[in-house]
């Protein structure tokens, strides 16, 4: 498996100004502002291979977008080595830019008053696609995203979800090898979110494209990515598979219990084993420490007639919440 992205010791800082609040503050700020240097990314290293589906997770301001922008060539790193498809991103060589796509959520590049198709023909000219290539790719994308009927309607008449689809098509028309997606499902309804996720998976399968995704919706990460990079305060705190994520950070397992109607569950009794998330007469959901798991199961079997018992790794949302709230 070839490494397409190599990051070694990436550091990126930027300066911001402290502005005082209030009326007199604004007058003061006119004449003097205090400079503040923020380290957005401090010494991050990782590698990504062709065809991987990678998720960037981290709280706001952790450094995800900054790292992404460095990889795409928008930001110039302060120090470290960056290599994407063998190129130095910041040099922004044509050959490099023709192979990547950067989808930025709401920021549309489509002409507002014209049908999406017009913008696509412009993309064809920018990326110098042949007419056959262009037609083939467009048809494939429209089919995958169910967009054909909207091709010739002015973009301003489309709904937010359809505009997002149009935006995605615009970014994939030239079959980029690497997709950088920054919050692709933000503001979309549930159905549309699902459609976009399905599409990304299908596209990755068909074209072996590498997908790098940042999102605050854990469902995005969960359904698409098989590898996770977790960033907090500019540092990489996890780099590995999705499956191993929970066992690294969380010592609990999620346990769902369903018992026979004859019996009744007692919340207080359950609490001696772990944290009770929900509990009614016959069903309960608990987070139980691995060490106490055996004891719990024994006690359950001894005291109740079990209809269903489900033990699994806690989902990503829970893990991420634990990790980041623990830091506070």
């Amino acid at each position: 498996m070839t490494e397409v992205i190599k990051v070694a010791n990436l550091v990126k800082t930027y300066t911001t100004y402290d502005k005082e609040s209030g009326f007199w503050g604004s007058i003061k700020s006119f004449f003097y502002r205090k400079k503040k240097i923020v380290e957005a990314v401090s010494d991050i290293s990782f590698e990504i291979s062709q065809g991987e589906l990678v998720g960037f997770i981290g709280p706001n301001g952790a450094g995800k977008t900054t790292t992404l922008k460095c990889l795409v060539g928008l930001l110039y790193p302060d120090s470290g080595q960056l290599s994407v498809l063998g190129f130095k991103p910041f040099e922004r060589k044509r050959e490099f830019l023709k192979q990547i796509a950067f989808v930025m959520g709401q920021k549309a590049q489509l002409y507002w008053d014209l049908p999406a198709f017009e913008t696509y023909s412009l993309i064809r000219d920018i990326y110098q696609l042949s007419e056959t290539e262009f037609k083939k790719n467009l048809d494939e994308l429209c089919q995958l995203l169910d967009f054909s009927e909207f091709l010739n309607r002015p973009v301003r008449t489309l709904s937010l979800g359809q505009r997002m689809k149009a935006e995605i098509i615009a970014n994939l028309l030239y079959k980029p090898k690497i997709l950088f997606l920054d919050e692709p499902t933000i503001g979309l309804d549930v159905v549309m979110q699902d459609a976009i996720r399905e599409f990304i998976l299908a596209y990755n399968k068909r074209n072996n494209a590498t997908v790098i995704l940042t999102s605050h919706y854990m469902e995005d990460i969960d359904s698409i990515c098989n590898r996770i990079l977790m960033i907090d305060n500019g540092k990489l705190i996890y780099n590995g598979s999705k499956v191993d994520l929970s066992s690294k950070f969380v010592t609990e397992k999620e346990v769902n219990v369903k018992i026979n109607l004859k019996d009744k569950l007692n919340k207080q009794l359950l609490e001696q084993f772990g944290r009770v998330v929900s509990c009614d007469q016959t069903t309960a959901k608990l987070m139980i420490n691995r060490s106490k798991l055996n004891g719990f199961i024994k006690w359950l079997v001894d005291n109740y007639s079990i209809l269903d018992l489900d033990i699994k790794e806690p989902d990503i949302k829970y893990v991420v919440k634990q990790v980041f709230s623990a830091k506070k």
Binding site: K19, F23, S26, I27, S29, F30
Partner: peptide, 8 residues
């Protein structure tokens, strides 16, 4: 006034 002054 604050609005004006914030864009130096």
């Amino acid at each position: 006034v604050s609005e004006y002054l914030s864009y130096r």
